[in-house]
Design a protein around this nucleic acid. Structure first.
Lengths: 194, 194
DNA sequence: CTCCAAAGTCTACTCCAGTTGCGTTAAGTC
DNA sequence: GACTTAACGCAACTGGAGTAGACTTTGGAG
């Protein structure tokens, strides 16, 4: 990333990243400013502007870290249960008082900045690919027809959660999550998703 | 809304609304500023700030108008066809060079402003209710089990479109729309959505 | 150890979104 | 047709996001 990765630069980078996440968790995307991140991190404002450019840059960077850490793909032996687990994980993530605002901020930022949008796109591409494993296993067990598009099954399952959160602004319950997962399960079994 | 609805106030209101939509269509949400709307409409900046408050206020107002105009609910005689029509209508709406940016701006604005979020919520509540008509007819025909949640079927059908557009930032094709509609059709027939 | 340039700091500035206070216009009322 | 006041217009102001340029620190190479 930078030409001098060691020592001071690394400290600055980590301090800013941590401050960004903390601000996002407390204030959400609307309250995130370069100035506050600079103060909180102890790094000078101009430095943040030079290396990250803007609020969107801070978020794009934070997203890069988020993409690194893998998530637990369930393997219960049942396709329906696996899908339910995945969707519930998403739903609970947004309900979490710390992780929720941060995840929300990522989506909101991507709606405004091309950079953040690309980062988020890559993030979800990786997630879909990982989660599609449960579909591959279901195909092997004969629960789901061969040729089923695994990533698309995941999209179908989680989409209603995001739809409620970011489009219609309706509350989301665990029941909603389970229902969405089950609908995707039925559709996949019927061979509609290919 | 205002205590003096006639004459000048009405002209101001209409000019600002029209300018808002024009700016949104051309510039999108990112390029929408109160100042530009003021200039374009010929109304003074201060006046726009007083009556609409901010960019979000302009959008919340524009959404109010959008909610008024009803949309065509299909009645092809086939549940599957009806659902496909609805989802394709949504997909084509976003692909449209004029309506697309405006719709996108609504969603983006709602992600940041509580007022816009409430307006959008009401908007979609009305849409879901209207579109649920196709499910009611399907129940009458015996295509779908009684007790099926009509609004939820609509959510399931359109959610993947919005998910791709606003969350993962993936391209959306007509094929995606049809597949999503068909998946919702299968799930509804199976009695999973209630 | 020495050197040098990359990276960070600091101060002062610009610019523009949003506000304020006051004067002007015209909508609604009798 | 005169009066009241809601609503609009106007110009000057404020505050904070973002920039510019000179100066200082320090990581890394020889």
């Amino acid at each position: 990333m930078e030409q001098r990765p060691g020592g001071r630069s690394a400290r600055v980078r980590d301090a800013v990243r941590q401050a960004t996440l903390a601000e996002l968790a407390e204030q959400g995307y609307g309250g995130l400013t370069v100035e506050n991140v600079a103060i909180r991190s102890g790094v000078h404002k101009t430095t943040v502007y030079r290396r990250w450019g803007s609020v969107e840059g801070l978020i794009a960077d934070a997203l890069g870290i988020a993409r690194e850490e893998p998530w637990p793909i369930p393997d219960t032996g049942s396709f329906q249960e696996d899908l339910r687990e995945i969707v519930l994980l998403v739903q609970r993530g947004f309900a979490d008082p710390v992780a929720g605002p941060i995840s929300t901020a990522f989506v909101t930022a991507a709606a405004q900045s091309g950079d953040a949008a690309r980062s988020l796109h890559d993030f979800f591409t990786a997630r879909h690919e990982q989660a599609a494993e449960v579909v591959r296993r279901a195909v092997e067990r004969g629960e789901v027809p061969a040729g089923t598009d695994g990533a698309e099954v995941i999209r179908m399952a989680v989409a209603p959660i995001y739809y409620r959160l970011f489009v219609t602004h309706e509350p989301v319950t665990e029941h909603d999550a389970i229902r969405a997962a089950d609908a995707a399960t039925v559709a996949a079994r019927a061979g509609v998703i290919r």
